[in-house]
């Protein structure tokens, strides 16, 4: 299988959280992933996109989110969720379990913890008033299919 890249851009509304994780699941289907791998990818993407919708754009429904998906023939999937919102003040604090800036709205503060646990690598880059870029790397176990 050749290396592949698919990029999708959509407006930052909550309805698109589902769309984003469906697209990510569809992107990895050619690798014949396990149900567990698909669930982990869908969950991690859902967390990243929800963060952008809620925090980057303050649930305003304005702004866009870019979803870039890359795959290598060895089954390494890299998914980048990028927004152009307010950015994160303190990335280290944001990544800590139970951290949330909006406690009144029933947020769990577990988004980054789940992303970290469901992927092989998580990179968070952010610049104030410029935006945030979350990179999720997942190595699919494709050896059994070859």
């Amino acid at each position: 299988m050749k290396d592949n890249v698919v990029t999708v851009e959509f407006i930052a509304i909550a309805e698109n959280e589902r769309f984003a994780r469906m697209v990510a699941a569809a992107f990895v289907v050619p690798f014949d992933p396990t149900v567990e791998e698909i669930t982990e990818i869908k969950t991690a993407v859902s967390e990243a996109v929800s963060n952008s919708v809620i925090h980057a754009y303050n649930s305003s429904g304005e702004g866009t989110i870019k979803l870039e998906m890359r795959s290598t023939e060895k089954g390494t999937i890299t998914i980048i969720v990028e927004d152009y919102g307010i950015g994160i003040d303190d990335i280290e604090a944001a990544r800590a379990p139970m951290f949330t800036t909006s406690a009144l709205e029933e947020r769990s503060g577990m988004g980054f913890t789940i992303m970290e646990s469901f992927t092989d690598k998580l990179i968070v880059e952010s610049e104030k008033e410029k935006g945030t870029r979350v990179t999720l790397v997942k190595m699919l176990d494709i050896s059994c299919g070859l």
Binding site: R21, T43, S46, S50, E106, R107, I114
Partner: peptide, 13 residues
């Protein structure tokens, strides 16, 4: 069929 961390917030609330 699917739940992310929003489920946690909903349950705790």
């Amino acid at each position: 069929s699917f739940a992310d961390s929003s489920g946690i917030g909903m349950i705790m609330g």
